[in-house]
């Protein structure tokens, strides 16, 4: 009788050990017999894993300072035609009622209504511009950036009509003649294509922050992954009252403002 119980005990404990090892190899990757090499999977981007976003603390922004605009437009060879009608812009400054036309305008303090605010492409999660593009020249990338494939753009300007933020500009003329100090590392555009901010996707692949974020002397802009709950930008959005441009349209902009 004693023997019988001992045998059962040993049998059960042996099975228990095996089960524990199995569970451990599943739970702790270090214990598993066959390793998965993660970098091999990471080479190609995973769609939807990252969503780049920006937070602009307008309280810190100096009135009249145009460092970020100058740097962005230099790095990306944005032409300057000196003509409002043919203006090409990736990032610009505008008044409160133009940047936030649907926010409350009544009895707004002189200080807030009188300032100028930075505006750029919002890289919306529900981007209307990518929906209307007939050639899919503009599309939402795997990392939330609304990108332009200038190779495909036919210049129909549907996207310009669809964008509620005026973030897109059309090249009415050959832009090359209007670039004073071209940067060799980045291409220009040609006549007849629409262009806009690319959230510095060219710099992100090199591990650099966007040009405007880096150029700002007051560190007004915070750039980061909105899908990462531990990122600086998410912490700042959670701890401050923020605003988006025309949120009622449901475009879910990735650019946030602290007023």
């Amino acid at each position: 009788m004693m023997n019988e119980e001992r045998r059962a005990f040993i049998r059960k404990s042996g099975l228990g050990i095996l089960a524990c090892l199995g569970a451990a190899s599943g739970l702790i990757p270090k214990f598993s017999l066959e390793k998965t090499i993660l970098p091999a999977w990471d080479e190609k981007p995973v769609p939807g894993k990252i969503r780049w976003g920006m937070l602009i603390d307008t309280r810190k922004c100096t009135e009249g300072c145009k460092e970020c605009i100058a740097q962005c437009h230099h790095v990306h060879n944005v032409p300057d035609f000196n003509n409002r009608k043919e203006e090409v812009k990736w990032i610009w400054k505008s008044s409160y009622n133009k940047v936030f036309p649907t926010a409350s305008q009544q009895f707004q303090s002189e200080k807030i209504a009188g300032r100028s605010y930075l505006a750029l492409c919002n890289h919306c999660a529900e981007s209307p511009c990518t929906r209307v593009c007939p050639t899919e020249a503009t599309f939402r990338r795997w990392d939330g950036i609304v990108a332009m494939d200038y190779h495909r753009c036919i210049g129909c300007r549907f996207c310009m009509a669809a964008c509620p933020y005026g973030s897109r500009s059309f090249n009415w003329q050959d832009p090359r003649t209007a670039i004073k100090d071209p940067s060799i590392a980045y291409p220009t555009r040609e006549q007849g294509v629409v262009e806009k901010c690319n959230f510095c996707s060219d710099r992100l692949v090199k591990g650099l922050l966007p040009a405007c974020v880096e150029a700002c002397p007051q560190q007004v802009m915070t750039f980061g992954d909105l899908n990462d709950p531990k990122s600086d930008i998410r912490r700042l959005i959670e701890n401050n009252e923020t605003m988006q441009r025309k949120p009622e349209l449901g475009t879910k902009p990735s650019v946030f403002y602290i007023i």
Partner: peptide, 14 residues
């Protein structure tokens, strides 16, 4: 141990 290969993501240049 295999040399600690950094996970190639957008933060790190290739």
């Amino acid at each position: 141990k295999p040399s600690q290969q950094p996970a190639k993501n957008l933060h790190q240049p290739v």
